[in-house]
Each structure stands twice: as structure tokens, then as C-alpha cells.
């Protein structure tokens, strides 16, 4: 199969600020992670791919087509934006169903597929609640549902795990993996390398609007293992969570920064993300969200960029 995305010398200016700076890369079939710190140009690239922005220079193709004002192409991809805004007054069912109607599905089919998509992302019980009552993680899952409900060829996911709770993260990653196993292609951006690791070995690194490396994840990961990975946990029970995670032997530091969260540093982030949900459930803890400052990734980029 030809490349899902082919970008050549792509540049985009926001006034005097350079969003993309001669970005050149290709994304093949399967799951590809676009990894870079905040402000690297990940969202800019995705917005060009979905036709929301137009490049100032260079060339880009999504499924071998120019995405700008390309109405038929929009049937072939699903997009999950980074921000958390949705039509808050709608229920999740109505939200997904309405967007499926805009994909051309008749009302009855849209209803069925909306229900299936919400079940896939684990929102069956909450599907008839207004979206404004959803937690951040639930909104992420609702956004994912609307992105994949119409069976697109490609999913373009901008920071899909941002702010999601541990259960939500597992659900989202499981959904992405299942989608890819069934033949779909996924472009997924993140500023946390270890999020990508759960689902793929193919990554493209972006920094200051440029593609700086692409290929196998493990070689790149080895570069940052010497740096502890920071994870911020949002919880109304910081002391209890701190006590629970202190028992993990790869945790090297815990900072109780605020009354509603704590910062954990770990030498084995994959083990941390894998073990945390079980600890949360076993101790009956209330964890509202996980976020990763990109300190470790900055170290990698400093190494790669020089």
C-alpha cells in the first residue's frame, strides 16, 4: 500500500511564528505515532491533513489526495481534535448520531452505528447523558467514538490520551489497537513517548516544525531511559495515592505539589502505566486524570537536535 500520508517540505506560518518548517515525512499503514513536545507542530500538521488549514509551502497528501476543500476525502478519515470542546448540550448518542447523518447515513443506521461506537469506547452506560456532564476522559472517548463511527480508512487522533483517567486510557488504547487490527490506519500525536509504545513501534519525531527522526521506537526509547519520567496525577486523595504508588520499586520520587494532585517520577513509565489501574482499583482510589510533562522528551530532542 502507498503511504497514508506523504508530506514534502511542508511549511506553515502563523504571522511571524513558524508552525511547520519544511516538514518532510511519510506515514505508512498501521499505527504511526507523531511524537513531539508541545508547540512542535503536531496539531498544525493534523489540521493541514484534515483541510482546516492550508500549507503556505510544500506539498501534502492524505490517502494520495490534496486535503484542502476536498469534500469526498472527508468520508475516508475520522478526526479527534486535541481540545476538549464538544456540543455540551447534546447527549453522546445524539452527538455521534448527528455527525453520522452528516456522513450520509440514514437516521436508523446512524442510530445503530452511534450505539455501536459508544459501546466500543465504553460509554454505553453514559450515552444518554449530556456531554457537558462528562469528565475529561469521557469526552475523549466520545470524541473518539465520533471519529471512528463511520468506519473511516484513517483515524487522525490529536493527543487522544490527554487528561484521560487510567481506565479511560486503557479503553482508548484498546479501541485504537482493535481498529488497527481490523485494517484501519491510525495517525496519533502525543508528547509522551510511552503512550505510543503501548500500540505501535512506528514513530515520527517532530520538533520546532521539522521532522527530525522516524522509525523504530525502541532505539529512540533507549535514549531516554536514563531520565526519570514525570507523571502528574489529578486526585482529591493525593496522600492516599502517594502511599499506594510509593510501593512501586521503579518510582524514584513523589512531589505533593497541590491539594488536588501529585507528581510522580518513575524510571519505568511503561510498568507504571501498566500497574497503576490495578493499584487504583485495589485501593479504591479516586484518580481523575493523568498527564505527563514532557521533560524526558525534551532531553531526547536536545540529544537528537544537538
Amino acid at each position: 500500500m502507498s503511504d497514508v500520508v506523504a508530506a514534502r517540505d511542508l511549511s506553515k506560518w502563523y504571522g511571524e511564528v513558524l508552525g511547520l518548517n519544511g516538514f518532510t515525512a511519510t506515514f505508512g499503514p498501521g499505527i504511526t505515532g507523531l511524537v513531539g513536545p508541545n508547540g512542535a507542530g503536531k496539531s498544525t500538521l493534523f489540521k493541514i491533513l484534515i483541510g482546516q488549514l492550508r500549507s503556505d509551502k510544500g506539498d501534502v497528501r492524505l490517502l494520495a489526495e490534496d486535503p484542502w476543500n476536498n469534500v469526498p476525502l472527508k468520508r475516508r478519515f475520522g478526526y479527534c481534535p486535541e481540545h476538549n470542546q464538544v456540543y455540551g448540550w447534546m447527549t453522546a448518542t445524539r452527538f455521534v448520531e448527528t455527525l453520522l447523518r452528516l456522513d450520509g447515513l440514514p437516521a436508523a443506521d446512524a442510530r445503530t452505528k452511534a450505539s455501536d461506537a459508544l459501546e466500543l469506547v465504553g460509554l454505553t452506560k453514559a450515552k444518554d447523558r449530556p456531554l457537558r456532564t462528562y469528565s475529561r476522559g469521557m469526552r475523549q472517548r466520545a470524541k473518539l467514538a465520533q471519529a471512528l463511527a463511520h468506519d473511516p480508512e484513517v483515524l487522525i487522533l490529536d493527543e487522544p490520551l490527554s487528561g484521560a483517567d487510567p481506565i479511560g486510557r486503557v479503553q482508548i488504547l484498546r479501541t485504537i489497537s482493535k481498529y488497527a487490527r481490523e485494517g484501519g490506519h491510525v495517525l496519533m500525536s502525543t508528547h509522551v513517548l510511552y503512550e505510543i509504545e503501548r500500540v505501535t513501534e512506528n514513530i515520527v519525531l517532530i520538533h520546532n516544525g521539522k521532522g527530525i527522526a522516524s522509525g523504530n521506537l525502541h532505539a529512540i526509547r533507549a535514549l531516554i531511559d536514563k531520565h526519570p519520567h514525570a507523571v502528574r496525577i489529578d486526585t482529591p486523595q493525593p496522600r492516599e495515592v502517594a502511599q499506594a504508588v510509593a510501593g512501586m520499586d521503579h518510582v524514584v520520587g513523589i512531589e505533593m505539589s497541590t491539594a488536588d494532585g501529585l507528581l510522580v517520577r518513575t524510571r519505568q513509565p511503561d510498568a507504571f502505566y501498566r500497574e497503576l489501574p490495578e493499584i487504583v482499583v485495589d485501593h479504591g482510589l479516586d484518580v481523575r486524570g493523568l498527564e505527563s510533562p514532557d521533560d524526558s522528551l525534551e532531553a531526547v530532542f536536545r540529544y537528537l537536535v544537538g
Binding site: Q52, V71, K74, F77, V86, Y87
Partner: peptide
């Protein structure tokens, strides 16, 4: 301003 426009713009319906 509410960041909901992308949901419409990424559907196969002309602007």
C-alpha cells in the same frame, strides 16, 4: 470560538 467547527468541517459536506 467554542472549537466545535472542526466537527462540521471534517464531514463530507461542502463549506
Amino acid at each position: 470560538d467554542d472549537n466545535t467547527l472542526p466537527y462540521l468541517l471534517t464531514r463530507p459536506i461542502g463549506k
